[in-house]
Write a protein that binds this DNA or RNA. Structure first.
Lengths: 189, 189
DNA sequence: GTCTATAGTATGATAGAC
DNA sequence: GTCTATCATACTATAGAC
């Protein structure tokens, strides 16, 4: 197998360890042991521990940025856009739940360039989310509650999906989407 | 000032640093610098870095355990109990937002005894939450959606309040409670 | 592509002076 | 109650053999 394949294996193993203990608490020896090799050998495939973290986080952040771009530029209504955001988070979570732990909890350990790039993407994402909700309230599609609270409460649930989903026993993606849309948008009472 | 007062100052300073970088990434030298003393001096007030973490987390976990006990043993209906849980989380968040970061993200760095104690409290808390929602659906007070999704979506928002609340400009606690109850229970559309 | 050996630095914590 | 000095250990990363 080509070196790139091995690199991806290392990144995947690292994502699992980072999810369990956090970036700072995982040593290159831990990661090497998980791969069945010695720590020094890792450096034939990756440049640094930092490179592993930034690959995990930036790839995911770009995925969300792309997905949000598609949703924003569509000509759907606010509610349909919110449903599509929920669907986006569920899709990404099913594909890479481990990596999302780093995106949520270890982004602050990114270094200068990537840290700024990440923070910009996250800020833009939240801004787009807020705009959709605001337009929804103006159009009368969304209840006139406090915008910040609506954005925060929805987004915090979507961002934490990665912790919850793996504990469910192979819940079907389509059913999950349907139920999550009901609970997040229509409430529980 | 008595030694206990100084100890509390250290724990408070540590909570802020743990919130910013996580337990593992904060060194005793970082903490000492924040306190304006040398690392060795910290050990006249605390026994270990681990003691700081367990104090922060266990105190908060016991606070939630006590609050949930009060709510469960009351004879209110399911909806009123859910409102009281939301109120409990907001009260604790306003009082100790920094410590909640450790409770949420660094509990896995607790050592044997305290780790088991914490995990037991968290499991019991979730179980109580689930029972309230389940009884609510049976009584027809709560919509018959997937229980796990309703519990998860509400709890994930409440657990993440510590990240969001400090960014709001002195939002009034009473208004926050009212709006949060509306959004979490009645939905946004 | 993996290994052993090791450089250079950082860590949590202790001993003992003031 | 804080300091300086230090211990023992652990960390990321590199050099060079196989």
């Amino acid at each position: 197998m080509k070196p790139e394949g091995r690199k991806q294996e290392i990144i995947q193993a690292a994502a699992i360890l980072f999810k369990e203990k956090g970036y700072s608490a995982v040593t290159m020896r831990d990661l090497a042991k998980a791969m069945g090799i010695k720590a020094a050998s890792l450096y034939n495939h990756i440049q640094s521990k930092q490179e592993i973290l930034s690959t995990i986080i930036i790839d995911l952040a770009e995925e969300f940025t792309y997905g949000m771009g598609q949703i924003v530029s569509s000509d759907e209504g606010a509610i349909r856009k919110l449903e599509n955001i929920i669907s986006l988070h569920i899709d990404v979570t099913l594909r890479n739940a481990d990596g999302l732990a780093s995106l949520n909890n270890d982004w602050m350990h990114l270094e200068e360039e990537n840290l700024l790039y990440f923070e910009k993407m996250r800020q833009d994402y939240e801004e787009n989310f807020r705009n959709i909700v605001t337009k929804g309230t103006v159009a009368g599609e969304v209840k006139p509650y406090n915008i910040e609270i609506m954005v925060f409460s929805t987004l915090s649930t979507l961002r934490t999906l990665y912790l919850w989903y793996p504990k469910q026993n192979n819940i079907d993606a389509a059913i999950l989407k349907k139920d999550m849309i009901s609970v997040l948008l229509k409430g529980v009472i």
